[in-house]
Amino acid sequence: MILFATSDKGGTGRSVTSCNVALRCALQGNDVCYLDFDFGSPTAGAILHVDAATRGLDGGRGLHSYLEGSVAAPAELDLWRHIERAELRPRPAGAGRLVLLPGDEGGGEFPVDDEMTDRCQRLLRRLAEEFELVIVDLSAGRSYALQLVLEVTARPALRAVVTRWLVFHRWTRQHIVAAAGLAYGEHGIVDTGAAKGHHRDRLHDSVRFVRTAVPDPDSSQFAGLLPTQAAWLQETDAELQKLAARQRIGRSVLLGSVPLDPVLQWREQLILDSDVWTLRIANLETSTALDALAKSVLDDESWEGL
């Protein structure tokens, strides 16, 4: 399966959440690879604690260089040998492969030409052959990267490959409206995809949403709130639920929801068991939510047509 991670706005938690999902899917025994297609700001290396690629790769072997045609294949980093976190070395027993294809340092957004499209198609098809899950982190909004992957996934060579879409958004009015717009609105994913030859309904059915940094009014985090504050929080949450439903991004298309986490708020990183149990800095709810999200990603039932 190829999973495209998108969001309308920047800074939604798209990269942090999908890196954590990639890790958890691999820990559950699946072969996973992660492509940093956010050419303007390739951050996956930093989130995954890979020192060699904190701001993308230097030396011109990243995804950007590959798509441009200056290398025959992009670099693939075996994360079990590159993640600088002691708990993950050596590769945990039973874990599947976990491979990062980093972007290039100093890359940027770029217009797409035919040859690039061909290269992108070949790469994605090959990775879908070699890995159970291929996660592609796209730049925010209606980017060139989004255009590119909508184009290649409509081609015959990739039509038979299962491709799915995740739209990440924060739990606010503006983010809800923006996420719905990116998926279903004018020049959104479904619109653009249909124009490029995708089957409109099928594409529509392959989109799911992930809510990030969601404050949970019932959690202990908010135990110290004044009764008026707690009531307001409850009310706002209920309103947002209604808004999401009206925007057609309600529960039926919700794949997961990650609570607001103190660690993630301060730093883009992987949340490991040790962060929850030993260091006691991350919340157990965050870890549980990420696990549930990873399970849903790989569970065909959560992607069944509506």
Partner: peptide, 27 residues
């Protein structure tokens, strides 16, 4: 490697194939 990699891609892209291998394996 680039030449035969492309040839392998070409074979694997054949419309005869349903792109649903029984399991995933690295080349």
């Amino acid at each position: 490697g680039a030449v035969c990699g492309r040839l392998l891609d070409q074979a694997q892209e054949s419309p005869f194939l349903d792109q649903k291998p029984p399991f995933r394996a690295r080349r």
